[in-house]
């Protein structure tokens, strides 16, 4: 099965073209240019859009706008190509790329998205990693000092384990179906709903 995978939920947009588990190519850029990466991946692999059999897309949590760019891209592709889509949590993809690690994504406003038993949003100080816990992701990099003080171990900033690599989205993707059934994972209500009486 030829799968196109991408994740634009974090500052580093990732993409991969994977054929029956074999990674044909991987790229990184930003959400707005993810389609340039997708185009390059197919060209480099000599693959035609017609040959795509599934799309695996990162559903967040992460930047709301980034998540939407990814899902709108997936929905547009699915509509035009008639291929099914599967959503993969950005936290799950990070976890798959660093076995045993705790994925921590920067949620801005002084908070992080983490995968404990389930995806949650909390302040870095509320996250009490047991000593020696490996933390990966944009949140781990941003709150390195807080998390290291709590006993966590964090790879160097440039370590690829901090990025939700799209090869793992392709690997984790299950239940390919209609694109509109794949929903974003925001984990936060819009501000207006919070202040509304």
């Amino acid at each position: 099965m030829l799968i196109l995978a991408f994740d634009t939920a974090t500052d580093v947009a990732t993409s991969a073209l994977v054929s029956d588990g074999e990674v044909l190519g991987e790229r990184r850029s930003r959400a707005v240019t993810v389609l340039e990466d997708i185009d390059a991946l197919l060209r480099q692999a000599g693959a035609h859009t017609r040959e795509l059999e599934g799309i695996a897309v990162g559903i967040g949590p992460g930047s709301f706008t980034g998540v939407r760019i990814g899902l709108a891209t997936a929905r547009g592709l699915a509509l035009a190509l008639g291929v099914p889509v599967a959503g993969v949590s950005t936290l799950d993809a990070l976890a798959a790329g660093a076995l045993g690690a705790l994925p921590v994504v920067d949620a801005r406003r002084g908070e992080v998205f983490v995968l404990e038993d389930e995806p949650r949003v909390l302040a870095p100080a509320e996250l009490r990693p047991s000593p020696g816990t490996l933390c990966v992701g944009s949140g781990a990099v941003r709150y390195r000092s807080v998390l290291e003080a709590a006993g966590a171990e964090i790879p160097a900033d440039q370590d690829e384990r901090h990025v939700p690599r799209a090869r793992f989205h392709a690997q984790l993707a299950r239940d390919f179906g209609p694109a509109e059934a794949v929903e974003p994972m925001y984990l936060r209500v819009p501000d207006a709903d919070k202040t509304r009486k």
Partner: peptide, 19 residues
């Protein structure tokens, strides 16, 4: 609204690219 515009732009780009 930038966040609103980006949804339409991403979808339109994907459709145009695919075809």
């Amino acid at each position: 609204l930038i966040g609103a515009l980006l949804v339409g732009v991403a979808a339109a780009k994907a459709i145009a690219w695919a075809r």
